[in-house]
Amino acid sequence: MTSLDVTMTVNGRTVTGRVEARRTLADFLRKDCAATGVHLGCEHGVCGACTVVLDGCTARSCCTLAVQADGAEVMTVEGLADGTDLHPLQEAFWARHGLQCGFCTPGILLTMRELLADNPDPSEEEIRESLSGNICRCTGYQFIVEAVKDAAAVLRASSADRG
């Protein structure tokens, strides 16, 4: 069984490690990079709790081996806030009660961030469709949908400000 050296950027910091080839990116991030905001809800690609941003696009870190991410740039929920300023999605989820146990939340926040980058003014149906890859067992999704709408408006306003 091979172990390999990997180097990647995690939330802006370069990390290197020696990992077994079979180690998933999720385990590498959680256990070797202390990014415990990456959650494992199924380890087979369905629940979305382990979602991270890998080279700019969302990816399931449970369906990715750490060695596949060698050289990549990774962002986890720990990298979402700007210093201690919450991201507008985080603010909106807080204000709108878009989370209960919070286990699904990191994956949902990153998935919604990608949605709003692609589609700054999504309809309710588009939000629900985009959310459908992330299972939340607690909320029934409605307050999540409302939070995403609010955050979209805030993000649109701030990008309009910036011109």
Partner: peptide, 11 residues
Amino acid sequence: DPRLLTGRAQF
């Protein structure tokens, strides 16, 4: 919520 939203919770 703030802990849960920022990945700082401890499960």
